[in-house]
Design a protein around this nucleic acid. Structure first.
Lengths: 215, 215, 215, 215
DNA sequence: TATGAATGAGAGTTCATTCAT
DNA sequence: CATGAATGAACTCTCATTCAT
């Protein structure tokens, strides 16, 4: 139990690491519980239990239930964005990068179905006056849109996508992705969402019209 | 104030009308409160107060809080769908009808901003075992998608839209509409969403790509 | 509808009669409902409905729910006492009169099983400060004990029962009758309580001992 | 206050003991409140207050108000039965044992007057479908009757009591005991019920008749 | 007189949060 | 640090009672 050779720095670092480890365990348990039942139906008690802690311990790692919820959201969204970014940055051709981003996002949705069930159902609660924490979530959404936006702009620069408000284009794309996910989750069929990737990408690129643009 | 000549039938009819009137008042107040704070943060007490009734009165019109929430959802969605349907049916050219539907929906979102704040944030709670009521809401969403779908199919029949799974196309469109609305609401700017109608419609029709389809 | 020949007195009398009639209907409905569910589980609404009136009407005949409950109790107990009294007074031999009283009470319990289900389970609520109404119920119990007591005393005078505190003897007898009824009701078998009459009477007269008294 | 030497086992055992202690305090407070006002007029809040706890704490020890009520009933009846059993088992002569049981029960009623106020007024509520908990109370009553019955049968075997259905005899005796208690409680005089023991016992043994049995 | 819609106090219960251990 | 018993505010919902019609 005791490591007498450990320097104070090492001890501090280890403690820090352990603390992060436990925080992560709680986050993971919280994600499972929140995903299964949503924010209000999930009790702090049940999350603590799932994480193997006592309920009071949660408050040593998170200010309150809402902060925990936010943290889960932020962690997951960050994961998603990182995943999509990594995948799409590995492709140099801009349009292909976009296709890749679409596919990556749907794959991620597949792998974290439970989470996106709540994600598409309930956004974090906006308690009055808690603007600070909410802002972080907001920023996360912003990063997400921003990522797609930068991919779009890269393609626009090469004239592969037509000009236009890239932010709004990114919104269109995100809307498609979220809604198709929601639809599949609600019908809770087993088929992977990733199968929709090509359809969404094509639709994003060409729309529904049959006639040629500006012909 | 006294209607001595009133027949029993008239009296009954008037009572029925008044009852509907009060039900509508409660629905309207509930919509405001729910929209501002979400389902769980809204107390029945506050809704009653906003409607000008005592809290117990709510239960004379709705079985419980959840039923009230459902009713708000269903009423509003039905209104929306009816509005979009009426507006789009008045245009015979299928693509124009779709444009019209898009415009109508965004206008409606504008006129009922508060509601679509919750609509885009939290779906009705799905209490375990209350499949019955939930099904009604689900059907509502179904009607909505179905309406857009039928407009799309009409255009496909005339070869104005390319072939393809009309259900998925409708989902894409709805995703765009919902997400653009969410974005505007969250940034709570004053500009009307309807201004986005043309952009959304063009995007739906032609997508983001610059090159001509299948060229 | 109008009886123009009716004198004012007649009209008043008729109204009085009709009022009594309606009061009785309410009492009867209340008895059924209270008997089935007890005081607290029975709502005024349901009693009114069972009586064919609106809930507000109840309050034109009874001060409140508790007074109604009391009235049911008093009415039923009075009926019981009258029945037992009538039956036992018709027999001149004192011991036979007692046997008859015992039989009559059990018969009455049989005929009004539902009522005695609550009677044996819950006595009227004693709201603080409502001594007045409660006193009436108390008096009723007093009359009941008093009736048995007078039968006992009559037999004592003729040396057919041994001397002793007739009030306590009456209590013993009532306790037996009530408890045997409770037991049968709780086991809710179909056999009539009246079958127990002879057993109770013999027991009351001779007790459980085998040896002869004072031998 | 600090027990640094305490082993984990000791700590657990102490906690268990303390928990039982607090449960008992709640039971005791509940008994007082329920006895004074009955089940429905007693609020959980007032019971908690009487026990020196916050209202929520009650629910850490009892599932709900009804379970608490049941627990009060069962605990008290079990105490009573144990008391009567212990006392009567210490006497070998069967008839004397019965006399002793009668005395013991009335003494117990004396010592727990408040409880027997409700005991004789309202039986536990039988919520629909809660057969499980209700059964426990029912069993308690059964044990009570069974105890008296076994004493009676012991006396019958030695021919000290006449033959006959011992269950019904036990019911007679219990009816007497309960009713005499009720009478004294309602008149709320100060005299001990135990003074009635001899009277009840004699009455149980010999009944009211003056003539010798079947002589 | 009868109605029944409206009232609103009050109930039981939950659970996020705290803090003595 | 971790615990988990205790807290108590806040919730939804019921229903006896009133009173305008």
């Amino acid at each position: 139990m005791i490591h007498p050779q450990e320097s104070p720095n090492q001890a501090t670092a280890r403690r820090e690491r352990e603390r992060e480890q436990r925080r992560a365990e709680i986050l993971s348990a919280a994600e499972r519980i929140f995903a299964a039942k949503g924010f209000h139906e999930s009790s702090v008690e049940s999350i603590a239990e799932a994480a193997g802690f006592a309920s009071g311990t949660i408050y040593l790692y998170f200010q309150d239930k809402e902060a925990l919820y936010m943290a889960v959201f932020i962690a997951k969204l960050t994961q998603l964005i990182d995943y999509v970014e990594t995948r799409s940055r590995s492709v140099s051709q801009p349009v292909e990068a976009l296709r890749c981003a679409i596919g990556a996002q749907l794959e991620f949705h597949d792998q974290h179905r439970a989470f996106f069930q709540i994600f598409s159902r309930e956004r974090p609660p906006v308690s009055s006056g808690k603007g600070e924490e909410w802002k972080q979530v907001h920023d996360c959404f912003g990063r997400h849109t921003g990522l797609l936006r930068s991919l779009i702009e890269a393609a626009q620069k090469r004239k592969l996508l037509r000009k236009g408000d890239s932010h709004r284009m990114a919104l269109m794309l995100l809307g498609m992705l979220i809604h198709v996910t929601r639809d599949l989750i609600e019908r809770s069929g087993p088929e992977p969402m990733a199968e929709q990737a090509e359809f969404v990408a094509d639709f994003f690129l060409h729309g529904a019209a049959v006639e040629r643009r500006a012909a």
